[in-house]
């Protein structure tokens, strides 16, 4: 038997909504685009930042983010909390995160179902966890700790993975469902990650999405991947965030909107960053799909 786990009750005054981001498309905020954004104020639903990039004292990053936050909803997306780590959460990091959230009052905070550090060493990659009762317990404890510390509900992102563990005793969606149930956190559905993991582990991406609780999804991520091959010559997709969203991922996104309903959707791009106009145009494909599905949902 697994030890009993008490879900954290949302602190008084904290939002119990999954997110208050608008039901629109947003893009990842890149320093390369700061100037153009504050000169043109594009009509976008929201911006998303990586929390760790803004854990600095002052200067350009805070100058522009402050101005941009005055006009747009904001999603803060952590990449360094290492929720899946065997070792304890880094309290200094958690405090820095808390200060950043207090400063910018984002509409949403999200992190990954992954680990990226071991003890003091930070590896700067989102590493996989085995889906066991033991990992489940630890991940839930870490999420409880984060939600208590930040006094808000967080979203957890499904991972893109390249290997699986023989120790796993449940599927990824079973594992995620159990986390959502126990901790009350929401889900950041990364459609690109679903596609990548399902190709890499020979599973059905539609089944994966059908297995998730629609009401838990607070945000959707879209991004591009790179394609390589494994040792048998089968496709191995890499979550590179360095190319436009693939056609297959757009199709899976449309399926997800139909299956789970609409959710604020972020276009991520972290490598080979194009001009802002290119990124904006791509985000408008998501915006149009969101509009179509909102209309269909309201007619249904």
């Amino acid at each position: 038997m697994m030890p009993l786990h008490t879900p954290v009750s949302p602190p008084r005054g904290a939002s119990t909504q999954t997110t208050t981001l608008p039901l629109r498309a947003g893009v990842g905020l890149k320093p390369e685009h700061f100037r153009q954004i504050v000169e043109t104020w594009p009509d976008l639903g929201f911006f998303e930042i990586h929390a760790e990039n803004y854990m600095v004292g002052g200067g350009t990053f805070h100058h522009y983010l402050t101005r941009i936050r005055e006009r747009y909803p904001l999603s803060i997306h952590g990449v360094g909390l290492s929720i899946g780590a065997e070792t304890a959460l880094d309290l200094t990091h958690l405090k820095q995160l808390s200060a950043l959230i207090e400063r910018y009052a984002p509409q949403s905070f999200s992190e990954h179902l992954a680990w990226s550090s071991h003890g003091e060493v930070f590896l700067n990659d989102l590493l996989p966890v085995p889906y066991t009762a033991q990992t489940l317990q630890r991940v839930c404890e870490h999420i409880d700790q984060v939600q208590s510390h930040l006094k808000r509900r967080m979203l957890l992102e499904n991972p893109a993975t390249y290997i699986e563990f023989s120790a796993s005793s449940m599927t990824e969606t079973e594992f995620i469902n159990e986390i959502l149930r126990r901790t009350g956190c929401g889900l950041l559905l990364d459609v690109n990650n679903v596609y990548i993991s399902c190709i890499n582990h020979h599973r059905d991406a539609h089944d994966y999405i059908r297995a998730l609780p629609p009401q838990a999804v607070g945000e959707i991520h879209l991004a591009g991947f790179a394609q390589e091959q494994d040792a048998n010559g089968d496709p191995l997709l890499i979550d590179s965030h360095g190319t436009p969203v693939a056609q297959a991922v757009w199709q899976l996104y449309a399926f997800a909107l139909k299956q789970i309903g609409t959710a604020p959707t972020l276009l991520e791009r972290d490598n080979d960053i194009p001009t802002f106009d290119v990124l904006f145009a791509e985000s408008q494909l998501a915006e149009r799909l969101l509009q179509v599905h909102s209309v269909q949902a309201s007619k249904a």
Binding site: L123, N124, D125, F165, S166, A231, N232, D234, L236
Partner: peptide
Amino acid sequence: AGLLTWNGSDPAARFAVYRNNVQVSL
């Protein structure tokens, strides 16, 4: 030890993706 691949391919090639991500990004 303990890594699996659906097609029985050598997990070393897949593990190398993580190794490469860490190295290259840093």
